[in-house]
Design a protein around this nucleic acid. Structure first.
Length: 264
DNA sequence: ATGCCTTCCGCGGGAAGA
């Protein structure tokens, strides 16, 4: 079963790219981030026509996440618990039936957090990460195959940036950010890409500006975290980098994994 | 580092992104 995360940077602006990519890549489950639309304006019909079920947690103008799945949804939960006042649409989870039992997949869009001296933005990022850790701790107790995928806005290690020195003052590479990410991992997750390669040049994002793509000035910030039950079924991961060279690309590319699971 | 692009909203630049 192929599961992919992709920050699409506007699903309405990118619907042609998305349908082309779905046909080419043939994922079973897709975690989308930054759909930048309310549910009612999501281009549902074009995606359903390709055989996908669609669940959306949208928001006007920015943020917004979605799950696309060839499997039927047994359950859908929208929003990350822990702060009733948080109105930003950054989290959706779906549960599916497989030949090996339940599979839970979450699509997350972790706050950017810049600038770090803003009185709200970086604290919001860190508190969101703390909420995510609590959520993960609870979900891991279920002992399900769990894939926690999305745009984490975290550069985990220096090797995950072409020019790490450029990111020292950035929320994506702060010691507190990296520590919170390690705390999450240390609950018992396997980070899929780093489980199969320690290579540099495994980036998932290239800025639109200053010819970042042409210069390969990239960072790795889109991650898939696997519970032990998912990691035991995990065989491969790949970054679908060629999509960044398409016309009107997102600044992120799809990151895919394969799990030895079949629809029930 | 900033904002060299790009999206969104909505009609004119402003917010947001990373």
């Amino acid at each position: 079963m192929k599961i992919v995360t992709w920050n699409i940077n506007g699903v309405r602006a990118r619907i042609g790219n998305l349908t082309h990519w779905l046909t080419e890549s043939a994922p079973d489950i897709v975690c989308l981030q930054e759909i930048k639309t309310v549910d009612e304006q999501f281009p549902r019909a074009e995606i359903e026509a390709l055989g996908y079920n669609v669940e959306i947690h949208g928001q006007k103008g920015f943020n917004g996440v979605a799950l696309l799945s060839k499997l039927r949804f047994d359950e859908v939960i929208k929003g990350l618990p822990g702060d009733e006042a948080d109105e930003q649409a950054r989290f959706i989870e779906g549960v599916f039936s497989t030949d090996k039992g339940a599979l839970r997949v979450a699509s997350l869009y972790l706050p950017n957090g810049n600038p770090i001296d803003d009185e709200k933005k970086f604290p919001y990022k860190l508190s969101w990460m703390a909420r995510l850790e609590r959520w993960a701790q609870e979900r891991l107790r279920l002992e399900e195959a769990l894939v926690l995928a999305g745009d984490y806005n975290v550069i985990p290690e220096p090797v995950d940036a072409r020019f790490p020195e450029n990111w020292l003052g950035d929320a994506l590479f702060q010691p507190q950010t990296r520590q919170a990410f390690r705390r999450l991992l240390n609950l018992g997750f396997t980070e899929a890409v780093r489980a199969v390669t320690d290579a540099s040049d495994t980036y998932t994002f290239w800025d639109y500006q200053a010819g970042a793509w042409q210069k390969n000035n990239g960072i790795r910030i889109d991650h898939l975290l696997l519970s032990p039950e998912a990691a035991n079924r995990f065989s491969s991961a790949s970054i679908e980098k060629h999509v960044r060279a398409w016309e009107k690309p997102s600044d992120h590319v799809p990151v895919a994994i394969d799990l030895a699971l079949l629809p029930a």
